[in-house]
């Protein structure tokens, strides 16, 4: 039984590393956007379109990293579109976000048809666990470079929100548009840029899905991960570092269902497969109720106004 427990723990570690990266990128992108005072619910669209574009570009050019860049580009496009539309008077950012979600996925399905069948070059992993001599552990520690990029980015964002002029401007725009205006900051421009940059990150998250794990393009690829990642931002209280932990936790919980079945605990797999969602709900209920939590919310968000 001890052995079985180790298997599950290793599988959860591996799952956390493999599955978390797209959540991480989308959540970081959404954090940036929401910090500027706008909600972009359309990142699911960015994720799916990013996955499709990355796969297509990687297939056509033969270079997977070019695909990643192109996915980011497609994310900027959708993000900028969202940012521009929301600049228009009396436009609701949540409604636009839902429209962008359908638009992004629709676009991806439409242009992605010819790329379902072919096999494109994928991103390589860095084998960090070969020294352990344990094949399962070595497999779990096959880490894609994007995972580290995501962590570095989170640390950078955490630092930048506190210590750079740009970070402070984004936060000010998000907390009080009136103060930002008084300071001579163009609120619309800041939000436009924050949404476009957030879209870029979500696009990269999509590239990870199609080029690394699970590593192929098809229409069911994302199955709502972009939406879950947006929810993770609230769960992480708009803190980039907490976004990383939230994404890791979610990935590990997702690996629980299959790995329990693999060691013979096969009863109740529907319940274990729902673990990530149940966990999110519980933590949301516990964390969102406190007064301290209310302080973390950017003041300009349309859900809190």
């Amino acid at each position: 039984m001890d052995n079985a427990l180790v298997t599950v723990l290793i599988a959860m570690l591996g799952g956390a590393i493999r599955v978390s990266t797209p959540f991480m990128f989308v959540a970081l992108g959404e954090t940036l956007t929401e910090k500027s005072g706008r909600i972009n619910l359309g990142l699911e669209g960015n994720l799916v379109l990013g996955a499709m574009v990355a796969y297509a570009v990687s297939y056509l050019s033969g270079n997977a990293w070019l695909g990643v860049l192109a996915a980011g580009g497609s994310g900027i496009f959708l993000g900028a579109l969202h940012g521009y539309i929301c600049k228009l008077p009396r436009v609701n950012d949540i409604a636009v976000g839902i429209a962008m979600m359908s638009f992004g996925t629709g676009l991806a399905f439409f242009f992605g048809k010819p790329f379902i069948q072919p096999t494109a070059p994928r991103l390589d992993a860095i084998p960090l666990g070969d020294w352990t001599g344990n094949p399962a552990l070595a497999q779990a520690l096959q880490v894609n470079p994007l995972f580290f990029v995501g962590i570095a980015l989170a640390v950078f964002m955490f630092w930048a929100f506190r210590n750079t002029r740009w970070g402070l401007i984004v936060r000010m725009t998000g907390d009080s548009a009136a103060s930002a205006k008084a300071m001579g900051v163009s609120v619309d421009l800041v939000r436009f840029l924050a949404t476009a940059a957030g879209g870029f990150l979500a696009g990269i998250g999509g590239a990870f899905l199609s080029l690394y794990y699970p590593g192929s393009w098809n229409q069911g690829l994302s199955s709502g991960q972009g939406l879950m990642a947006v929810a993770l931002v609230i769960f992480a209280r708009w803190d980039p570092i907490k976004c990383i932990f939230a994404a890791l936790l979610f990935g590990a919980a997702g690996a629980l269902g299959p790995s329990l079945q693999s060691i013979g605990i096969s009863q109740g797999y529907y319940f274990f497969n729902a673990a990530p969602y149940i966990l999110t709900l519980i933590i949301m209920i516990i964390s969102a109720g406190s007064k301290a939590a209310a302080r973390d919310v950017p003041g300009e968000l349309s859900i809190t106004k």
């Binding site: 599988a11 799952g15 493999r18 497999q139 699970p214 069911g220 079945q261 693999s262």
Partner: peptide
């Protein structure tokens, strides 16, 4: 034969997880 049920007809990430879990087993 060792079986893992994913619970859905199409769920790529969980299918990949299940495959990895079976190979690990």
């Amino acid at each position: 034969v060792q079986v893992i049920f994913t619970g859905e007809w199409s769920l790529p990430v969980r299918e990949a997880e299940a495959t990895n879990a079976l190979v690990d087993a």
